[in-house]
């Protein structure tokens, strides 16, 4: 009971923070719209797109851009632990009489709340790219977004546990976040790629999330929806376990 209240309390703080930084909410919606409208229209009219999706390239990247939003929000929210450590607030949480796995879980749930809110805004705006949305699809997408964000948020927490300051931010951006985005099939179909690139795409957990979202929204995907969901669920459980383990075992440099 105490653990559940602890998880809730940490979730509540994350969620309050999310709503209080309004600029973050605005950018998190504007950035994907820029990708969809400008990049989508621009590249869509420059190349002949092989797919047979109504709505063409813009519609094709729509689930990819939702995936991108979830990726960025989740990883960066996970990395907010670095800020918490720098500003000292992490100590307050770590010395509380609740278990470290509960702290990690509360944090991860807070992260996925933020991601899911952003994803739902984009889902509601589906008409912009001419993708039709019905309630069932919407709910399915939300569930996928939730599983993805728990995994990616957990991954952000793992990275944060090993990063001392926000100076490592650019490294994480260049070497983890951007490659994950580019190799996820968000912007191009993953079938028919050269073998070396295909290998990189298939070890990327985001690929399965994007593919699942594409299956749900467009009815078109490289892998069966169930397989993708199993992979991202497995990834989520794995990341939560790893970050819970690290936060329990690793001595945080807090002072």
């Amino acid at each position: 009971m105490a653990e559940i209240e602890g998880i809730y309390t940490i979730w509540l703080r994350e969620t309050k923070r999310f709503f209080r930084y309004r600029s973050r909410i605005v950018t998190s919606v504007v950035t994907p719209l820029l990708w969809l409208i400008i990049f989508g229209t621009g590249l869509g009219s420059a190349v002949r797109f092989g797919g047979n999706i109504p709505g063409g390239y813009q519609a094709f990247i729509y689930p990819g851009i939702i995936g991108q939003t979830i990726l960025f929000t989740s990883i960066f929210s996970g990395l907010s632990v670095i800020m918490d450590r720098q500003y000292g607030f992490l100590k307050e949480i770590l010395v509380a009489p609740i278990s470290r796995p509960s702290i990690v879980l509360g944090k991860a749930l807070g992260i996925s709340t933020a991601s899911v809110i952003q994803a739902s805004i984009l889902l509601i705006l589906s008409f912009i790219v001419g993708v039709s949305m019905d309630p069932l699809t919407f709910v399915l997408c939300i569930i996928i977004a939730l599983i993805m964000s728990v995994g990616l948020g957990g991954m952000g927490l793992v990275i944060a546990a090993f990063t001392d300051s926000m100076e490592g931010f650019n490294l994480i951006m260049s070497f983890i976040v951007l490659p994950m985005f580019l190799l996820s099939g968000a912007l191009f179909p993953i079938t028919g790629l050269p073998t070396w690139l295909q290998a990189a795409v298939y070890i990327n957990p985001l690929t399965y999330g994007v593919d699942a979202l594409r299956a749900a929204t467009l009815g078109e995907s490289a892998l069966p929806l169930e397989i993708s969901i199993i992979v991202i669920a497995f990834f989520a459980v794995l990341m939560i376990l790893i970050s819970a383990l690290i936060f329990s075992k690793k001595e945080q440099s807090l002072m």
Binding site: R13, K16, R17, D84, Y87, G88, F89, L90, E92
Partner: peptide, 8 residues
């Protein structure tokens, strides 16, 4: 050192 959250 301070252990407060500015935005709470």
């Amino acid at each position: 050192s301070r252990a407060l959250d500015d935005i709470l």
